[in-house]
Design a binder for these strands. Structure first.
Lengths: 335, 335
DNA sequence: CCGTGTTTTTGAATCGTTTCATGAACGGAT
DNA sequence: ATCCGTTCATGAAACGATTCAAAAACACGG
């Protein structure tokens, strides 16, 4: 009843454990006839390799962990999809961890991943407070690549999109459309992406003398967008356009506005961020700032394996992509 | 440079490894003063437990694996979200594997999970061909719970939703709305959920003499929905309503119809399946068959831990939930 | 039949924990 | 001083694979 080990297989095939191991790992190094005998024994006993033992010996697992802010956000699933093929073709396995924008959850994951001696880590940190934890991992020889986030002066590779520029694009677009009062919806402000997008937006507003009102949300999801709209509709001198920190928030905002009979874009325009697939399929197709999601993931994985390969004499690289604005109905000029 | 182990900690603290282990696992069993000394050494050396060694000794990992058809489908992320709290409160960890509706990918995951000696498995199998593989795992003492899928006569616990009934609900709704020719969009037909939903739909159509045309798709995503519409619009005597195997397909279909200037619901009604959050926020809010997603996940995890706890004398349970139809604009009667 | 070179196989050492039987240390009662 | 009961600490034996130096088996020319 207890699980069968290599020893059992060895006994059944009348060989030593070393030979069984060879059949599994370097079949070409064992004689045709022996190999067959061992393989028969394996099939017979239903033997399955024990990965813990393997890893213990190897000192490292084959797992690449990706820690994201929200697995339910299509943006991140696309990033993961971009990274997977590369990892798998390198013989690795991907494991996805959801921090849920919560520093404590993130830390729990990091602790666990370190105990598991993962091969590498791709992470979109919740905020700057994670920095020391992350450095701890890379200090323990676990290469780390920051995703959707510049490394700043942190000692890591990174793949990011210029969020300040993205924020500018969105704001410029709205200003060009003639809006004189804009709302920004998003939060928590500690999330760097949020801060940067807002920052870019604010720059443009100041440059062009447009009023900006900020509605902070506790998270970047559907729900948050809807609630922020409730708040916004309460205020007098309502903004004529909203820029949302991501598309989920924007979809929530859109639904909130629609529920209150506010016409989009005639009475209130919307710009989102990420250009997830659902954006184009929304009630009113959303204008959005597009990021190269899959490429973000692919490049991150690439940097990770480069770092692993180069070992000691590796120099960190920081790749920055430029976002672009996709204009759709939610910011169309009134007909 | 090499990782520090318990031995190093023991030496630094001037105790034996057994004691260090005790500090970590049963701190109350070691004297106050010693404990402090060991903990200081741990912090000093930056010691991190090696999980592989732990698992090797324990013979089991603490990981509960969830294998889903598509991580990007909000239906599944909600199921996962439902399961997570229970698993974590039991001291476990969740790992999500995406089979992408591909039997081969699914099998690769299963092989790996078996090698990892996971604590348990929650799986939505791609189709029936997985059955023998899955039984192999449970034969090796890894409890398995089927998710969103009845166990039939397979020896497992299961949590499912009555898809045949769901299909009936959708069709009935459309028939009541006066439609005389309905299209079903979805596939591959080998996926049981697809077959059942179509089956229920077909029953109702036959009972009420309504014509049914089936458009098979290679997958259950956005893209598939859009392509099926291209095909449907080509045919003469076009159906006046479509029932889609899930909401992603429905959203794709909606976009396809809109792009071709076909008005929803006036010229073509749509019913989706799953009632994901995006359904209500779609261009035309989607009518959909709702499943208790989170509860599905929660119950599955519950059954899994029950099985683990009961051990030898466990009897498999099969829970079936009933779906309900949520009517929205996409099937509203013409105004 | 021997020596030499090549191909296979062996088996002990190792990875880092946890567990557990054993022993040490100590206090208090006799 | 001795004995007993607690409370703590010890260290060796697993767990199951991989690795590698060394032994065994074989081939073949002389």
């Amino acid at each position: 009843m207890t699980t069968t080990s290599m020893k059992d297989v060895a006994k059944a095939a009348g060989v030593s454990v070393g030979t069984v191991s060879n059949v599994l790992n370097r079949p070409e190094a064992v004689a045709e006839e022996t190999r067959a005998r061992v393989q028969a024994a394996i099939a017979d006993l239903g033997y399955v390799r024990n990965d813990s033992a393997r890893q213990l010996r190897a000192g490292r697992s084959r797992t690449v962990a990706i820690v994201v802010l929200d697995v339910a956000n299509p943006f991140f699933t696309d990033v993961v999809r971009g990274a997977e093929p590369l990892v798998e073709s390198a013989g690795g396995v991907v494991t996805v961890c959801d921090s849920g924008e919560d520093v404590r959850r993130e830390r729990r994951h990091l602790e666990l991943l370190e105990e598991q001696r993962v091969l590498g880590l791709l992470i979109t940190p919740v905020d700057d407070s994670s920095a020391s934890w992350i450095e701890r991992l890379s200090g323990h020889d676990i290469p780390v690549v920051l995703v959707d986030r510049g490394a700043g002066r942190h000692p890591h590779c990174s793949v990011a999109v210029d969020d300040v520029h993205g924020g500018r694009l969105a704001a410029q677009h709205l200003v060009e459309r003639g809006h004189r009062k804009i709302a920004f919806i998003g939060g928590p402000a500690a999330i760097p992406q949020v801060a940067d997008r807002l920052g870019g937006c604010r720059e443009v507003c100041e440059e062009s003398g447009v009023e900006l009102e900020v509605f902070a949300t506790p998270g970047l999801n559907f729900q948050a967008g809807r609630e922020a709209i409730e708040q916004m509709l309460g205020s007098e001198d309502r903004p004529t356009a909203v820029f949302c920190a991501n598309d989920l928030v924007a979809l929530g905002a859109l639904q909130g506005l629609t529920m209150h009979g506010v016409k989009v874009p005639q009475e209130c325009a919307i710009v989102g961020y990420d250009d997830i697939d659902f954006a184009a399929a929304a009630a009113v197709p959303l204008s959005s700032v597009r990021q190269p999601r899959a490429q973000l993931g692919r490049t991150a994985a690439q940097l990770l394996f480069d770092e692993i390969a180069e070992g000691r004499d590796h120099t960190h690289r920081n790749v920055v992509f430029q976002p672009e604005l996709v204009a759709r109905a939610s910011t169309a000029l009134e007909l």
